[in-house]
Write a protein that binds this DNA or RNA. Structure first.
Lengths: 190, 190
DNA sequence: CTCATTTCTTAACATAGATCAAGTTTCTTC
DNA sequence: GAAGAAACTTGATCTATGTTAAGAAATGAG
């Protein structure tokens, strides 16, 4: 539980009592590699906090192609937030890319916590604001930069992620095919 | 001030006293058409609430092409949130597309308000969570759908926006060139 | 009302990246 | 450590969208 406590502490002040209340609502779940936490078409009543390992969320388009929406390593949250917030079936899948441990926080539990632990609003305000900024940055890069430029930047900014996540998912996250990414890598290595 | 009060009321409970405190921090600004509120490279210390009219934020890539990041009509917030949060120079421009009225909320004023009006954390938590969801949806659509499909959806979901915003900015928002959008429109009208 | 500006359209041509099809290498699991 | 699955690469070909260039239409400011 150290990781998640530290994560709260990095954004807000939390008393031990308050953290206890939160802890009581968290369920731990261990995952094997490639285990699905969520299927498109179903309601996603949880936020998942990655304690260890790595997960991805992705959509499946009408042509049958997967698109990676989020990659989450330890110390990050992942969910189908649209479904989580609206209580409607979502269109994302979530699965582990490695053996992982996650904490599940249920929608209703979180609603109770928002009223019990007043600084939780601030915690998620900060969390969502940063997530939003990074999503807008991704939109901008997808429009303004070539596939090669986007890959080089990821290589610079997140070298560790590249070493641990299969390129097939990296390419999807970047919005290109695995074949294109392979060619880009070949070109760069010259 | 009705619009902004209603906007708060739609997400949180606010006493008249609390709204007064907020009101005291809001500065009104009237804009002519095509007036710039922000230039890339400068710090953006404000959130702008659009009371009337319409604004866009956009980046300028190294090839000299503009990319519309956000379109904001009345009752919406717009800013260079990355700069606003980090206090560093941003890379977005913001300008009015029509004569508009906006309310400016300064970073430092907002920080004071977060401590004075406790439900403001919740307000922005909700606001940012929805903005994040919609940004992720846009990322997904850009990857999963063709330009034509994206335009058709916008036509269905935001017909009013299409009537009021020049297609040159719509095409940029959709991540395509004005020429491509023009061809798509021609094709559809057959 | 009118001129200047901005926006929109069309056409010919170019290209980044997709698709299809194998073959190879690398991991996982038992 | 062997077999099967998953991931990666390569080449040939295709296509959606970009680029360039120009004219037509619409809009806004005086």
């Amino acid at each position: 539980m150290h990781l998640i406590r530290n994560n709260f502490d990095s954004k807000i002040d939390l008393s031990d009592q308050e953290f206890e209340w939160i802890k009581l609502e968290l369920k731990q779940k261990d995952l094997r590699r490639k285990e699905k936490l969520l299927e498109a078409g179903s309601d996603c009543p949880y936020l998942f906090f990655v304690e260890s390992g790595c997960l991805r969320s992705f959509s499946l388009d009408k042509r049958g192609t997967e698109h990676v929406i989020q990659l989450a390593t330890e110390n990050h949250w992942i969910s189908d937030l649209s479904s989580f917030l609206t209580q409607k079936p979502g269109d994302l899948f979530i699965e582990s890319l490695e053996p992982s441990t996650v904490y599940l926080l249920h929608r209703e539990a979180l609603d109770r916590l928002f009223d019990k632990v007043s600084s939780l609003d601030r915690y998620f305000r900060i969390l969502y604001s940063r997530a939003y900024v990074s999503a807008l940055g991704r939109i901008n890069k997808n429009m303004a930069e070539t596939a090669e430029e986007r890959y080089k930047q990821l290589l610079e900014e997140q070298p560790k992620v590249l070493q641990r996540i299969p390129l097939i998912h990296i390419s999807s996250y970047l919005g290109i095919t695995p074949e294109s990414l392979s060619r880009i890598r070949k070109k760069i290595s010259d």
